[in-house]
Structure formats: structure tokens, C-alpha cells
């Protein structure tokens, strides 16, 4: 898997197929990016589970925080890791120890650990790094176009009017794998120099 530039079909198949997402590092503070992403994905119909040992006893969008992935107590499809790159590996180890393990490990925008990715992929999991599932969902559904963002997709079908809890179609025509060549190149240069 080329982790510098993902094909849209790869991201699309993950977001179309996962139903439950455990968010490690979810924050109840409503100005943190993890809070936005959690709320958005919940509104788009995903079964969201907040994981953060510092907030056990509290809830996020009505969902109780759990301290660890092991505490969820039921199978989950995806682990979305809202931690710095240096904290990824222990979370991946914890995810791989689950029975059954999740199908997808997703590392948030800015987070990347190639060794952890390799370990998860060797165990048969799909891995996404340095991306935000909210942004990718908004992009593939074109909902993000409201913000003037280049969704890198086209469609001649009538757009839906999103309502609460509604899953949007992500199956629009992608432009050349959905890459913006210049920004992907810059991200690759950054990951090589850091």
C-alpha cells in the first residue's frame, strides 16, 4: 500500500463498509478536531465509541467513554487514532490483541507510523495514515464542496439534501485516483525529511 497517496477507491471501500468506529483520543472539548470528527461521523450514521481513559464517566454525543479498546466488549470495524505519531504503536498493539481484531486502522491527519502500519497490514488489516475520515467522507460525498474544497470528484446526478443520521453516497466519479498531485508530493517530501 502506498501511504503517500491513497486511491479514492481504497478510502471509499473503507468508509462504505465500516459501521462501528472506536475513536482513540476522542475529546469531549467541543473545539478539538477529534470532537468535530466524532460528531460528524455520528451524524453520518456511524456507530461511534469514544475511547479515552481521562474521560471515563463522561459521555460524548450520548456515548459513554471507555478507557481502552479492550473495554468496548464487542467487535468493532475500525479504530480511528487521534494521537501523535509517537503514541500510535501501543494503540495498534492493543487493537491487534482484540478478538476479533478490527478491519481497519486509521491514523488521523498529521499522524503517521510506518512500522505500526506494516504490523497491522501483516495481520491483514487495512491502514490509512495522515488523513481525517470526516474530511474524506465530506470530500467523497462532495459535502465538503460547501467550503470551496476541491472534492476531486464529479457527478451529473442530483445532489442529496443531507439529513441527520443519513449516509451519503460516496460513489462519485473520482478524478485520477482522487489525488492532488502537488499536495501529495509536498506531504511525501515532509514525511521523508521529518
Amino acid at each position: 500500500m502506498n501511504h503517500d497517496a491513497y486511491d479514492d477507491n481504497y478510502i471509499r471501500s473503507i468508509l462504505n463498509n465500516v459501521k462501528s468506529i472506536a475513536m482513540v483520543g476522542a475529546s469531549p472539548v467541543n473545539v478539538r478536531p477529534s470532537y468535530f470528527a466524532f460528531k460528524y461521523l455520528a451524524q453520518r450514521g456511524y456507530d461511534m465509541i469514544p475511547v479515552n481513559p481521562g474521560h471515563v464517566g463522561k459521555t460524548l454525543m450520548g456515548k459513554p467513554f471507555v478507557a481502552s479498546l479492550a473495554d468496548i466488549g464487542r467487535p468493532i470495524d475500525m479504530v480511528d487514532i487521534f494521537r501523535n505519531s509517537s503514541h500510535i504503536m501501543p494503540v495498534v498493539d492493543e487493537a491487534l490483541a482484540l478478538t476479533p481484531p478490527p478491519k481497519v486502522i486509521w491514523m488521523q491527519l498529521g499522524a503517521r507510523d510506518d512500522a505500526a502500519a506494516e504490523k497491522a497490514e501483516a495481520a491483514g488489516l487495512k491502514v490509512v495514515m495522515n488523513r481525517c475520515p470526516k474530511i474524506e467522507y465530506g470530500r467523497l460525498s462532495s459535502e465538503i464542496s460547501w467550503m470551496g474544497v476541491n472534492s476531486r470528484t464529479l457527478s451529473s446526478k442530483r445532489a442529496p439534501i443531507p439529513t441527520q443520521g443519513m449516509r451519503l453516497s460516496l460513489n462519485r466519479t473520482s478524478l485520477g485516483g482522487g489525488q492532488t498531485a502537488a499536495s501529495d508530493r509536498a506531504a511525501k517530501n515532509k514525511s521523508e525529511t521529518s
Binding site: M147, G148, N150, S151, R152
Partner: peptide, 14 residues
């Protein structure tokens, strides 16, 4: 905005 961003190969526009 999205049209010009796409034509220029950018990520977004205003």
C-alpha cells in the same frame, strides 16, 4: 471555487 481549484490543481479555493 471548486471549479477553479480543480482547474489549477489546488486543494481548495476562495
Amino acid at each position: 471555487e471548486e471549479r477553479v481549484a480543480a482547474l489549477e490543481g489546488g486543494t481548495a479555493a476562495l
